[in-house]
């Protein structure tokens, strides 16, 4: 245990990297995922097909395959970027597919009858979205998006498999260098549990805040 505290700075650096990757990855994935969802529901056939294909491809290939493809495959065609950026980009692209589905399922929860009623009352498309669809859809998106966020946080650990020294990578390094596997794993597990619990709490609070007051 004392070794861990003596080298706490390293571990803290790992935590920082994990958090940075989470925030950057989720931010980019959110933007890309919303754009994909818009493509998916748009009446323009090529964009719709593009989104459908993207989701099918990205969702069915394991994240680790994407990571090794990006990290070891892309340099073969002359695309070599800093490791951290490459890994974060791969994650953002992967999770964008899941966010697209979460956003779409949120929009689907709005009953079609309401939309038809609003149109019968003369709502235009943007009014419809702003006053009717989005306020309701966003509420039911919080929970699935929270799930994606937690999954993303936990899966940033896969970056360790391609050489990023974030929390999991740092733990592996600890166990090999100082030969203290059990305490190192215990501390890291505790940190991950804390992160997930915080994510769950945050999601729950956000959901309550957005809930309808009846």
């Amino acid at each position: 245990m004392s070794t861990i505290f003596a080298h706490g700075g390293q571990l803290a650096h790992g935590v920082l990297l994990t958090m940075l990757m989470t925030v950057l990855g989720f931010g980019c994935a959110l933007v890309a995922g919303v754009v994909l969802a818009v493509f998916h529901i748009s009446p323009v056939p090529p964009l719709h097909r593009l989104a459908v294909g993207y989701v099918a491809v990205f969702r069915n290939i394991p994240l680790l395959v994407w990571l090794v493809l990006f990290v070891f495959g892309l340099p073969e065609i002359g695309l070599l970027y800093p490791l951290f950026g490459t890994v974060t980009a791969a994650m953002a692209l992967y999770w964008a597919a899941f966010i697209c589905e979460a956003v779409r399922s949120g929009i689907r929860t709005v009953p079609p009858g309401q939309i038809e009623a609003a149109r019968a009352l003369g709502f235009g498309f943007s009014q419809l979205l702003r006053h009717l669809v989005l306020p309701q859809a966003v509420r039911s998106m919080v929970q699935p998006l929270g799930t994606v966020f937690i999954a993303l946080t936990l899966n940033t650990s896969l970056a360790a498999a391609v050489g990023v020294r974030e929390l999991t990578g740092e733990t592996q390094f600890f166990t090999i260098t100082y030969d203290i596997p059990i305490p190192a794993f215990a501390v890291t597990t505790a940190i991950y549990v804390l992160i997930t619990l915080a994510g769950g709490l945050l999601t729950g609070r956000l959901e309550r805040k957005l809930a309808f007051k009846r």
Partner: peptide, 19 residues
Amino acid sequence: VEVFRAIPLLLLLYMFLFG
């Protein structure tokens, strides 16, 4: 449930490998 859902699979694997 809370613990094993919160441990990344890779960390669990490292535990089996090194721990």
